[in-house]
């Protein structure tokens, strides 16, 4: 099957990852030899839906 081939190919190549948010995940991958780009990201307004709704109207 084509999907199985794609997964096989993916797993057979070195891991390259873009990590969003928690930096520990990037550190863990990097310590295992993976190529990682970490993006320092947090949800807007800390994920608070009420504040996000207010900001949507005024920002």
């Amino acid at each position: 099957m084509e999907s199985k081939t794609a997964i096989d190919k993916l797993l057979a190549t070195p891991v390259a990852a873009i990590n969003l948010g928690v930096e520990d995940f990037a550190d863990n991958l990097e310590s295992q030899g993976a190529w990682v780009v970490h993006v320092n990201w947090t949800p807007p307004a800390g994920g608070d839906p009420e504040i996000i709704a207010i900001l949507d109207k005024i920002l």
Partner: peptide, 18 residues
């Protein structure tokens, strides 16, 4: 503390009819 800014935004929304 972030809660100061969140509470100010809530008050702003209330005052200005949001």
């Amino acid at each position: 503390p972030m809660v100061c800014f969140h509470n100010a935004l809530r008050a702003f929304a209330a005052k200005y009819g949001l």
